[in-house]
Every structure is written in structure tokens, then in C-alpha cells.
Design a protein around this nucleic acid. Sequence first.
DNA 1: AGCCGTTAGAGACGGTCCGTCTCTAACGAC
DNA 2: GTCGTTAGAGACGGACCGTCTCTAACGGCT
Lengths: 194, 194
Amino acid sequence: MTQGGVRRRGAELEASLLEAAWEELAAVGYARLTMEGVAARARTGKQVLYRRWGNRAELVVAALRHRTGSIVDRIPDTGTLRDDVLTLLRRMVRRQHDVSPDVIHGLLAEVPEMNPEFFTVMREAMTAVLRQAADRGELTLDALPARVVTLPADLLRNEIFFAREPIAENTLLEIVDDVFLPLVRATAGGTSDR
Amino acid sequence: MTQGGVRRRGAELEASLLEAAWEELAAVGYARLTMEGVAARARTGKQVLYRRWGNRAELVVAALRHRTGSIVDRIPDTGTLRDDVLTLLRRMVRRQHDVSPDVIHGLLAEVPEMNPEFFTVMREAMTAVLRQAADRGELTLDALPARVVTLPADLLRNEIFFAREPIAENTLLEIVDDVFLPLVRATAGGTSDR
DNA sequence: AGCCGTTAGAGACGGTCCGTCTCTAACGAC
DNA sequence: GTCGTTAGAGACGGACCGTCTCTAACGGCT
């Protein structure tokens, strides 16, 4: 009886548990996060956790979802393809700031099916952004190979996964200006370019 | 005394240990590989392992190194940039066939400093291959942004890490023909366009 | 207001594996 | 043949897992 007889229930309790998991993650990292640790931090017992999530990985995934919203709640529309793509990449970076590589690697090692929205979400956002650009006449959509569409996200993801330090803004600029845009212009040829 | 009094020593013993680790890896995967399991398979005690490697991760890394050689023992020289790059990518894929994502994720989760040669090796090979192409007059080397050089390896690595199935040959062709070569031609100008 | 079903909170439990430690005897060097 | 090293074997305490058990607080129902 750590609460002096006051018991949390339902959604309120669940939120407490997920926040405790999030704090524990920040405090000790994924590798040393234990169910016992989270339970203690939430001032409850392990069983309360196991009633909701089958294991560490499920709990952490739920905690992440509870904390960080979707990257693509709204599709950027700045007026140029360049800035739209940069905006999307910056959101990925901000997400990385919250969720360290440590956590990603740990999760990937424990749950093999970790790519539900992970890929598709960014592909859909990129498709939308490219369609806007096509409507403005910046490029011809159907000339673009599928792999080019996911290119910026793929490159940045690669960077994030092996980064020891936070991603530099300059990296994003390189991805967009040295790789993505030249390639788009070369294959889906712009109207006249600058 | 499982060996009837015959004791292995030095290099011979070490090779036995590493092979046992390799077999155990193939048998149960990284997640369920235990020091006790490897010791039992090698018909020895745990202490013999701990005298040589500090933990599971070190042992596995040593086992991988002992088993699989370097990707770039020899730089390909087929006569065209396209085939040279494809050759390098195919070697990466073959490597992936030996070392499952399961192992990579496990190692990355346990040892943060997993990228010593991991990156640099492929960059050096790509640089060499590009220099050959430049010598043949296929392109102008110094016009190529650094990020373009590592592009094929970065993309393939991204693919390997999240792949549930072995990489299709077609994926390699897309990377080279839809992304890399068009970009090289666009920025480091070949003989023809622009 | 009082009963009743659910479940929070707490911890015991057996099990696995970790990494350390201890001991004996096989082996290589001299 | 003697001696130092270390392979081989397993015991050990510790951490954490996931399950199970128990009590009592709480919400819903009549």
C-alpha cells in the first residue's frame, strides 16, 4: 500500500504506467530497463504490467506511441518540393531526438516485425509532397521510379541508425541538394529549372 | 573430462571455441545464444570462454571475423562502373546471407561502437571503383559529392537491416540503374547529356 | 446503503543465465 | 622428473524473467 489506500484504475492507471516506462527508459536506457524497475517507478506491482503487455518490448512500444505522436499528422505544403522534403526530414530528426538509437536497436533485436508504419508512413508523405510538386509543374510524377520516392527517408534512416551523435542540419541539406533534387530533375525533368 | 584426457590448447582450442560459437549462432540465433550453450557445444567450461572474451558480444564478433573474410579483399575491375558497383553490392548481399539481421540487431543493441570498418570499408572500395571509372573517362571524380559515393552502400545497408527476406537481385539493379547511375551522370557528367 | 465482482498492489516463487570463483589434473617447457 | 600454466568442470550469488497467490480497495448494481 504505497498510495495510502488510493488506487488508480483504467485509463488513468494505464497512463501512469506508460509514463513510468518512458521515464525509466530515459533514466537507464533500453538495455537496462526491467519490468521490476518500471513497476517500482509506477509504484505498483509487476502483474499490473503483465496484465496489459506481454513483455518488455510491447510495453516500450506502447510507451513510445503514447509519448510521441505521428510524424506526418499534417503534410507540409511550403510551396516548393525542396522545403516540403526538408520539413519531413526535420520531423524524422526530431523524432530521433526523443527515441535514441539504443532503444531502436533493442526493439529491433527483440521484435522482428518492427516495420508496420515505419516505412509506409514516410512513403505516403513523400508521395503526397511529390504530387503537390507535380501539380505545380515542378516535375512529372509517373516518370519517378519507386525507389527515388523513398530515397530521402531511406538515407536519413540509415544515418539515424548508425549515428553516434545527433544528425546535423547539413546532412539533411546534402541528402536533398546533392542527391534527391538532382536525381528528380534528371529523371522526372523539371519544366525549366533555375 | 569429456575428451578422455585429450586437451586442446592455444590456437587450436581458440579455433574450436569460435567454431562452436558460430554453430550455436546458426542453431539458436543470437537472442538465445548463451555462454553456457557455446561452452557445452565446445565441450569445455565457461571460464575458458571468459578468459578470452569479456562477454557474449565480443565472442560473437570474434566468431564472425573468424568465419567471414573481408568483403573487399579485391577491388572489382570489370571494365564498366555499373558492373563494378553491382559486384560490390552482390558481395554485401552474400555477406548478409551468412550473418542474419537477427545477429546484427543483437550486436548493435549490445555494443554501441559497432561501426569501425563497417562504413569505411565500403567507402574505400567505392572510391577505388570510381577512380577506375574516372581513368576510363566515364566521369569526373572531383565533381562527385561525398554522399553520392556512399549512396549505393547506404541504400543497400538500409535494405538489409529491415529485410525480412533475402535481398532480390532486382533491388540491386534498381539501386544502380534508377538511382546511382542517373545521379552520377547528372552531377559528374558523362560524355553525353548536359 | 450494502453486496459483489473485478483487479490493483505487493511479493513469493522456480527458472535461466550471468559473471566470478575454486579445484584438479593434463600439458608444455626446461 | 619437476614446475608453472591453464583446460575442463561445476558451484555460487545475483539479476531478472514470467507466473502465481493473496488481500483489500474500488465501481457498479440493486
